[in-house]
Each structure stands twice: as structure tokens, then as C-alpha cells.
């Protein structure tokens, strides 16, 4: 009989009408994300040795880090993520073998202005060296090294 299919469809929608709601009122209510969720980045500054592996692993050159040599140790002074170019692929987190860089499950990274999107994870001055520095040059060298580390390969 013509129309049977239409009636069946109506039955389904009527049946569903009194179902539990499937959506929540974001941003007043939030759904808990799964533990592996690729949300906002977190950096454990104490664990990070400023090796630059994460910056090298990134396909989009999102991570910019600067370091200075203090007492024969690399000191991370700046760790900035140009999050607007991030693919949230997780290659950087995978590359970090000090377990310093991690994803959190914070999802709201939206901002009113584009310039606010940039994620500054570390921005601090290098501490005064305890021993007297022999010369200025080593720190400078380390800096240019870091700059080279952020630019893997040629521009696509």
C-alpha cells in the first residue's frame, strides 16, 4: 500500500520524541573527554631539557623554543606554540622522550582575537649564572642552534 513507508517513518520519529536528550548545553555543561584526547598542550618545565625534538617532529613548524646555556646546562627560556597552525596530530608529544610535553583534555581554546590564540607555555628570563661566565659567545651559539632546530627542511 502506498504510504506505508511514510507511516513507518513517522512511527520512528514519534518513538524517538520522548527519548533522552542527546545533547548538552555547552558551555554551561561539558562532556568529559577521553584520557587520550588531544586538547590543549601542557609542558612540564622541570622535565623539559630543551632538546628541540618536539619542534623537529612537527610537520607545521608550530613549536618555537629558545634556550640559553646556564652553568653548562641548557635552560629553556621560551616555548611558544603557534597553535593556529597546529594539526593536533600528536607527533610532538610522541617525539618527547622526557615526557615533558603532554596533551590535556581542555577543549576550549577559542579566542576573540587571532593574536591571542598563540600558546605561550614558557616565557622567562634565564637565571644569573652562579659561576662567572668565561665568555658571552657560548650562549649566543646555543641560541642560533635553537633557531636552526625550529626550521626542519625547506618551506613547502
Amino acid at each position: 500500500m502506498f504510504g506505508q513507508g511514510l507511516i513507518k517513518g513517522l512511527q520512528i520519529t514519534w518513538g524517538r520524541m520522548f527519548d533522552k536528550k542527546q545533547t548538552v548545553k555547552y558551555p554551561f555543561e561539558k562532556i568529559e573527554m577521553f584520557p587520550r584526547y588531544h586538547g590543549r598542550f601542557e609542558l612540564d618545565v622541570d622535565k623539559c631539557i630543551a632538546c628541540g625534538l618536539c619542534a623537529n617532529a612537527c610537520p607545521n613548524k608550530v613549536i618555537q623554543l629558545e634556550k640559553e646555556k646556564v652553568d653548562k646546562k641548557q635552560f629553556l627560556t621560551k616555548y611558544i606554540m603557534r597553535i593556529e597552525y597546529c594539526l593536533f596530530c600528536g607527533l610532538c608529544v610522541e617525539a618527547c622522550n622526557k615526557d615533558a610535553l603532554k596533551f590535556s583534555n581542555i577543549i576550549d581554546m577559542n579566542q576573540y582575537r587571532r593574536s591571542w590564540v598563540r600558546l605561550t607555555l614558557v616565557d622567562r628570563p634565564a637565571p644569573e649564572p652562579t659561576e662567572t661566565p668565561e665568555e658571552e659567545t657560548p650562549a649566543k651559539e646555543a641560541k642560533s642552534e635553537a633557531a636552526a632546530g625550529q626550521a626542519p627542511g625547506k618551506e613547502g
Binding site: G9, T13, R16, Q22, M33, F34, R36, Y37, H38, L87, F88, C89, G90, L91, F103
Partner: peptide
């Protein structure tokens, strides 16, 4: 258009599963 809402509701369940595994809901890498 009703059909659209039904399949998209169910697709979210699949995306939940894939998010559990990969951490992303669409571009999994």
C-alpha cells in the same frame, strides 16, 4: 532532513570510540 540528524547522532558514538583510541574525533593521525 530528519534522517540527517539520526545518522549524525549515531556517528557520534563511532567518533567516541575512535577518540578513545586515537585522541581525535576526525583527523586521527
Amino acid at each position: 532532513l530528519t534522517a540527517f540528524t539520526y545518522t549524525f547522532r549515531d556517528r557520534e558514538y563511532v567518533l567516541d570510540l575512535l577518540e578513545m583510541v586515537s585522541g581525535s574525533r576526525m583527523t586521527f593521525s
